[in-house]
């Protein structure tokens, strides 16, 4: 018999474990956070859908014991949009990566955020393209290195939650592989929030991002998260200088804009009235 925790046993397809991720990869921790958040919310397994795209992050779908669909590169969000609109009673959760979500899938991200469709997007953000071997991504900081940035990366990086919030996402938060409690809470709140939620989760990639950029071991990368991630209340008290190398862990923004399926339901009702008046055809 496989030795595993009750949580993992309840929420994952244990016959597909251990997973394929590298030693020290944060994705395993974050996948457990997602599972814990769903478990804490006591959602019915058959009503939860996990949608993923392509890349290291996308493999999470196959390990989680829900309705799971591993789609094409960058397109997890529009697949999820179709599922949610077709069956609004389903809890649709997208697991994506920094490249999947903001490079090839960037257009879909901003438009899903703009519609405020009630899906939850969890970004396993490892600042690199891991599956293809360490190319720079839209979240690789300028000045750092990748196999396709042999003279240093000159691209500036996206702040994913800021991007989503500016596009209309009504809940954004940041998590890390280190801050498990806060990350589980953020994911839980994001799922419960009745609008488009995005939780950007820093995931250490010691194999490619770490090695290319001399960030040390997985432990060193986790220590960086510990030493630089602070709760919002604490962050607010910091001086501008102190803020330069710190980031907020936990909720970043939230508003009560109505969700898309809710608005669509109202549209259906309006169309019924109009069809009685035989306005068209």
């Amino acid at each position: 018999m496989i030795k595993t925790s009750d949580l993992v046993f309840r929420t994952m397809r244990i016959d597909h474990l251990p997973h394929i991720w590298c030693p020290g990869c944060g994705n395993g921790i974050l996948m457990r956070d997602v599972a814990a958040a769903i478990d804490n919310l006591k959602l019915r397994q058959e009503k939860v859908v996990i949608v993923s795209g392509i890349g290291c992050s996308s493999r999470a779908a196959g390990y989680l014991d829900f309705n799971t669909i591993h789609t094409t590169h960058g397109r997890a969000i529009p697949f999820a949009t179709g599922i949610k609109l077709a069956s609004p009673e389903l809890e649709v959760i997208v697991i994506t990566g920094d490249g999947d979500c903001t490079a090839i899938g960037g257009n879909h991200l901003i438009h899903a955020a703009r519609r405020n469709i009630e899906i939850t997007v969890i970004v396993f953000n490892n600042n690199i393209y891991g599956m293809t071997g360490g190319q720079y991504s839209p979240t690789t900081p300028a000045g750092e290195w990748g196999t396709t940035a042999p003279y240093g990366n000159i691209d500036r990086q996206f702040d994913i939650p800021q991007l989503a919030a500016d596009a209309g996402a009504s809940y954004t938060a940041r998590g890390t592989a280190y801050h498990t409690q806060q990350t589980i809470k953020a994911i839980q709140d994001g799922i419960a929030h009745p609008g488009f939620s995005l939780i950007d989760c820093y995931s250490p990639c010691p194999t490619y991002y770490g090695r290319k950029n001399k960030k040390g071991s997985a432990v060193d990368m986790m220590k960086y998260q510990r030493d630089h991630g602070v709760p919002a209340e604490q962050y607010a008290k910091l001086s501008d200088e102190e803020k330069t190398d710190k980031f907020i862990v936990g909720k970043l923004s939230q508003n009560e804009y109505p969700g898309y399926t809710q608005l669509y339901q109202q549209l259906i009702e309006r169309s019924q009235e109009r069809s009685q008046k035989k306005v068209y055809l």
């Binding site: 529009p78 697949f79 949009t81 179709g82 599922i83």
Partner: peptide, 12 residues
């Protein structure tokens, strides 16, 4: 996105 949403809806 259109074809992706269509496939998603069909899955549902």
């Amino acid at each position: 996105a259109s074809i992706a949403a269509v496939i998603g809806a069909s899955v549902a």
